[in-house]
Design a protein around this nucleic acid. Sequence first.
DNA 1: CGCCTCTTTGATAAAAGTCAATCAGGGTGG
DNA 2: CCACCCTGATTGACTTTTATCAAAGAGGCG
Lengths: 225, 225
Amino acid sequence: MLSEICIPLGMSQKDVVILDELIKERIRIPKGSSLFRLGDPTTSLYGLRSGTMKTQIQDAAGQVQITGFLLPGEVIGMDGLLENIHVSNAIALEDSEVCVIPLEDLDSLSQHLPILQFQFRRLMSKEITRSHQMVMSLGTLRSEQRLAAFLINISQRLSLLGYSSTEFILRMSREEIGNYLGLTLETISRLFSRFARDGLLHIQQREVNLIDMPALRALAGTDCG
Amino acid sequence: MLSEICIPLGMSQKDVVILDELIKERIRIPKGSSLFRLGDPTTSLYGLRSGTMKTQIQDAAGQVQITGFLLPGEVIGMDGLLENIHVSNAIALEDSEVCVIPLEDLDSLSQHLPILQFQFRRLMSKEITRSHQMVMSLGTLRSEQRLAAFLINISQRLSLLGYSSTEFILRMSREEIGNYLGLTLETISRLFSRFARDGLLHIQQREVNLIDMPALRALAGTDCG
DNA sequence: CGCCTCTTTGATAAAAGTCAATCAGGGTGG
DNA sequence: CCACCCTGATTGACTTTTATCAAAGAGGCG
């Protein structure tokens, strides 16, 4: 049953049962603490079961870049498969829970369950595409377009999880949004104020209410980072 | 022998021989033409054998973002494995040649050659990491830092191929560099002029001569996007 | 209540973009 | 062979966008 969240794509019931064997363990990650850190050996991947997390990379100078905000059902840790060393930090934005997918088991099972291999190939390809979209957002969009695209993206992903697509709570600070979008926290704050003034949304601290989705879409350019 | 270029990492001689069976075909791509286009079915991956290519995505409005410049030995097309439809265009910047790696063969061979599976997992993970670095570059670096990091990155990759790390020819225009780095062609041009004035490099059209690598590294912040 | 973090807002400055004109090379055709 | 044209590159003047610095306001929690 967990595996349906972790790996929710077209598998037969039988396959899903087999797959359940993969998930031996769950881990709770309290708000603010790390699931793994840069340099840790990569022994598992993780499917986010509940909560919200962020992944961030950092350079030698300590400069940080958030590379993703993760929602339930999404898989964390695939950037550590090059040398089996994590190259990012995964930090919980609220109390969260992940299911552990040991690489060892994944490998041995993949031998006899080709669809599992396909599935992970697809997930990795999806992450590549997502990251490329992010590059496009940072490379071509202006601040207001980036924030609009960000909100639409969050909205769509929450919607897929069965939550409201128009009312939700941002689990990340203005600073984290700014870092993610290549902007400063002040710019994010000003944009929220302007969007609210222009009737695109209501925002009260981290509670967002998207009012004019068509206008937001138009701003973002219909595509959704 | 081709496979050593296409998939150059730790395999036994025997494995390499088996792997050679994968490479049935080579394709020549003349300068300016496409290896594949957005929307094409993904039936193969491609290892670049010679030349230089770029991959770019585009949104509904036709806005383009270059997501990578490819040098010999690098693998193209992994972003198409989500739905087996290419989500990018791959275009030759000079006359190039790729070896074709049919997915069908890759899949059947992977069953009996686990190392091949690992290898592709690693390559995909590498692309994820590379793209995340790109996000960091766009999100946190200023224009001069981005260009310095770009030049160092090209330099390192050429060096690994046995070419000079200080003298090389840029196969892409100022506009393409600008698009890739989220800047305008004028900014790139000005930066090259400034770098030359400051004695960091010589540049004559597309011929670059890196003179002060330490200074370039310092500018880029030692990390190399 | 008071402290602490996060957020908002304003004033100013810096970075990069835009518009425009000129320049350089490379290739083509007279 | 040379002039011309076309694309790509450079440079300048000016504008826009976003960052920076600074101060004040709003919640939340001990």
